[in-house]
């Protein structure tokens, strides 16, 4: 008799659900809350001084498992590296976040926006202009060039954090 009773109990339990509120979020009408670590659209952020954070090290592009990131490094007159162009083919992106993991300067970040459907695949190819945001994104304080050893415009050798002033090579003092 047990199967019959359990069957009937199950029937009742399912029927009773009729009076419960559905858990569905009616997305386009209602906003969808996403977690703060949601991996959505990729942006390039700026450092606290408002300069591009990306130093064009190519680590994101090599970390990308679908090879959808490409860029070309270049240098300004004072030795600061930055990407001449930076292109992401979002029609290939799988939003795995490896690029963000690989980025040594917190430049590339995945943000909460995921509404990026397009009718043409070519519209999903984002250039640097489309990627670069004006803020620091998730990491407000970090500035790679403040800890790096290279000299750039406005930061000479020895000016970085925890650096001694440049050595006087000609000194013979012990």
């Amino acid at each position: 008799m047990n199967p019959v009773i359990s069957g009937l109990k199950a029937l009742w339990r399912i029927f009773a659900r009729l009076f419960k509120r559905p858990v569905t979020i009616e997305y386009p009408d209602q906003p969808l809350p996403v977690s703060s670590r949601w991996r959505g659209r990729i942006v390039l952020s700026r450092d606290p001084d408002g300069e591009e954070r990306c130093v064009a090290c190519y680590l994101c592009s090599v970390a990308c498992p679908v090879d959808c990131i490409a860029l070309q490094a270049t240098e300004d007159a004072h030795g600061r590296r930055y990407p001449d162009w930076f292109r992401i083919n979002f029609s290939r992106c799988i939003f795995c976040g490896y690029c963000e993991e690989a980025c040594p300067t917190y430049a590339i970040q995945l943000v909460q926006d995921f509404e990026m459907s397009e009718y043409r695949r070519t519209s999903l190819v984002y250039e640097k202009d489309d990627l670069l945001i004006s803020g620091t994104g998730k990491y407000p304080d970090y500035n790679f060039y403040r800890v790096a050893g290279v000299a750039i415009g406005g930061k000479d050798k020895g000016d970085a954090e925890r650096e001694q002033p440049p050595v006087d090579v000609r000194s013979l003092l012990p």
């Binding site: 399912i14 659900r17 009729l18 419960k20 559905p22 858990v23 569905t24």
Partner: peptide
């Protein structure tokens, strides 16, 4: 619709 409600959706 009924199946939906029985599965806590619309």
């Amino acid at each position: 619709r009924l199946l939906g409600h029985w599965q806590e959706r619309y």
